[in-house]
Every structure is written in structure tokens, then in C-alpha cells.
């Protein structure tokens, strides 16, 4: 009985950590521009697919990971420069629609380059699962959790201690004022897209040994990541992590104790409940807008 509960919990935390990493990417771009970047899932896909295809060509794993992350970073910059920047005076909704278009484009490109098949990536360390009180934990889950924790700490440090991070925050609060004090807002935006792409691709690489990877893996994981970010309160790093973990655990518990048929329904009704009672999410900033 207890071992079953523990198994559901481990499953939930592993999936949840994945969602959290994706949610962090959403948070970052939202903080910089109030845009919800629906191409976030594609960064995840690029990370996984590029690593797999490069290792298949004989590139050593570590180098392949670094190159894949760089590729995703460049793609993030390209997305901001070529798709978002030209529409600079457009409102936020238009920009969000642009990111949806970009995601479809990237997905199509990936399908042409890498085909439609699913690909495997080996575990980073041993493929033997770890057994705790009768429940088993995939050793890759520890990597997901570890990498996730490092990312969160790094992001918190970036936003509170570095000038660039503060510049991003300033831009998000008031673009004109930020420009007046000498912040080059276009560069800041580009930076935000790049960092968020890096985050996404790292997430894609660490989860690929668990989920497999293919050209369309970004759709549903991206969507779940967005749900996690919204539950946590868009814009809050802490919220993204808590939202992701909560979503993962609720999903696993629903599949285990209720019925696997209702797993997704439970997850998506969770966002309704949270937004109904706490419209700004669990950790959302308590801003009152004057009308």
C-alpha cells in the first residue's frame, strides 16, 4: 500500500520536474515581454532531437549536448529577431499568435530534417532503476530533478543579483522607463528569448531518455508546461516549480487511485480551480490594476 503510494509519488515528481523546467522557460519570456511563448515546447524538441542526431553521427555525448544547447540558443535569438522584433508595435496577443506560427514552422522544419520517427537517448548514468521502500525510481529522474534544481537557483541568482537580470525585470515592468535609464530593451528581449531557449533545450535533453524524443514531442509537453506555469502564477519562478510538481503529482495520483482515463481531465480541471479561486495563480504577483 505504502510502496504503491510512493511509486505514484515518484512517477509524479519525475513528470512534474519536466513540467517545471518547461514552465520556467515560459516564465522567463513572460517576465521580459508579457508574451507567452508557445514555441517553448519546440526548444525542448530541438534540444532532444539535435542531441540524438549528433550522437548518432558519432559526436561524443557531452559535445552533442553542448552543441544542441547552442543550436537552441541561436534559434531563440532568431525567433526574437526574425519573428517578434519586426512586429514591435504589435500588442501582446498578436505576439503570442506569432509564437504559435513560429512553433508550427519549427516543427515542420524538424520533421523534414529528422523525419517522423521516435528516437531513443540512453540514460546519462546507469540504466538500473533505484529501489526505495519497494518503489522504483528511474536514475534519470534524479538527473531531471538535479538539473531542475540547479536551473532554478541559477535563475533566481540571475534575476536578483546580476545587472542583466535586473534589466530584464525592469523592461518587463515598464519598457519606456527602462529605455530612459539606458537599457537597450530590444537586446534585453533577445537575451530573454535566448536564455529561455537554452532552458527549454536543457529540459528536452534531460527528459529525452525517459520520454523518447520526436519532432512533435514539444506540443503536449509544451502545453502541460504552460498549465504548470499558469497554476504557479505566470512570472513567478517559484510558482513554475511548485506548479509543475503539483501538476505531475496530481496526474500520477489520479492515474493510480482514480482511473487512468481521467488523468488529463483531472490535470486540466486543476488549472480551472486554481484560476477560479486565485486568478493570479499560486505565486502570482499581487498587482492591482487601476482602471
Amino acid at each position: 500500500m505504502f510502496s504503491e503510494f510512493l511509486q505514484y509519488l515518484f512517477t509524479g515528481i519525475t513528470i512534474g520536474a519536466t513540467y517545471a523546467l518547461i514552465a520556467l522557460g515560459f516564465t522567463l519570456i513572460y517576465n521580459a515581454s508579457h508574451v507567452i511563448n508557445f514555441a517553448q515546447g519546440e526548444f525542448l524538441m530541438i534540444g532532444g532531437m539535435a542531441t540524438v542526431s549528433m550522437t548518432a553521427m558519432g559526436v561524443p555525448m557531452l559535445l552533442a549536448v553542448v552543441l544542441a544547447v547552442i543550436l537552441a540558443g541561436l534559434l531563440g535569438i532568431a525567433l526574437q529577431r526574425l519573428a517578434i522584433a519586426p512586429a514591435k508595435d504589435a500588442n501582446v496577443v498578436t505576439l503570442i499568435i506569432i509564437t504559435i506560427g513560429a512553433s508550427i514552422f519549427i516543427r515542420g522544419l524538424a520533421q523534414l530534417v529528422w523525419g517522423k520517427g521516435y528516437h531513443v537517448m540512453p540514460n546519462f548514468s546507469s540504466s538500473e532503476p533505484i529501489e526505495i521502500f519497494g518503489a522504483v525510481l528511474n536514475s534519470q529522474s534524479l538527473w531531471v530533478l538535479g538539473v531542475g534544481a540547479v536551473m532554478v537557483v541559477a535563475l533566481v541568482y540571475f534575476f536578483t543579483r546580476t545587472l542583466t537580470g535586473k534589466a530584464i525585470l525592469a523592461t518587463s515592468m515598464n519598457k519606456d522607463a527602462a529605455r530612459l535609464v539606458g537599457i537597450r530593451t530590444q537586446v534585453v528581449l533577445m537575451l530573454a528569448f535566448m536564455v529561455s531557449a537554452l532552458l527549454g533545450s536543457v529540459a528536452g535533453i534531460v527528459v529525452a531518455p525517459i520520454t523518447f524524443t520526436s519532432y512533435n514531442i514539444g506540443i503536449i509537453l509544451g502545453l502541460k508546461g504552460f498549465v504548470a506555469a499558469a497554476i504557479g502564477g505566470l512570472g513567478s519562478g517559484m510558482g513554475a516549480v511548485v506548479g509543475g510538481l503539483a501538476l505531475g503529482v496530481v496526474e500520477a495520483m489520479a492515474a493510480g487511485y482514480l482511473s487512468s482515463d481521467y488523468k488529463d481531465a483531472v490535470a486540466f480541471s486543476m488549472i480551472l480551480l486554481v484560476l477560479f479561486f486565485m486568478p493570479r495563480g499560486l505565486f502570482g504577483a499581487k498587482i492591482v490594476e487601476r482602471v
Partner: peptide, 20 residues
């Protein structure tokens, strides 16, 4: 009698249920 969605990435919960 368990099910999973087409894009699910982990089925350990369902399998644990069956095992139990």
C-alpha cells in the same frame, strides 16, 4: 483494465495498479 493517452510519457502508475 487501464489506459494511457497517446502522448503520455510515463505509464508506471497504471502498471503499478495492475501489479497490485
Amino acid at each position: 483494465d487501464e489506459t494511457y493517452g497517446g502522448s503520455d510519457t510515463d505509464m508506471t502508475a497504471q502498471l503499478t495498479n495492475i501489479r497490485g
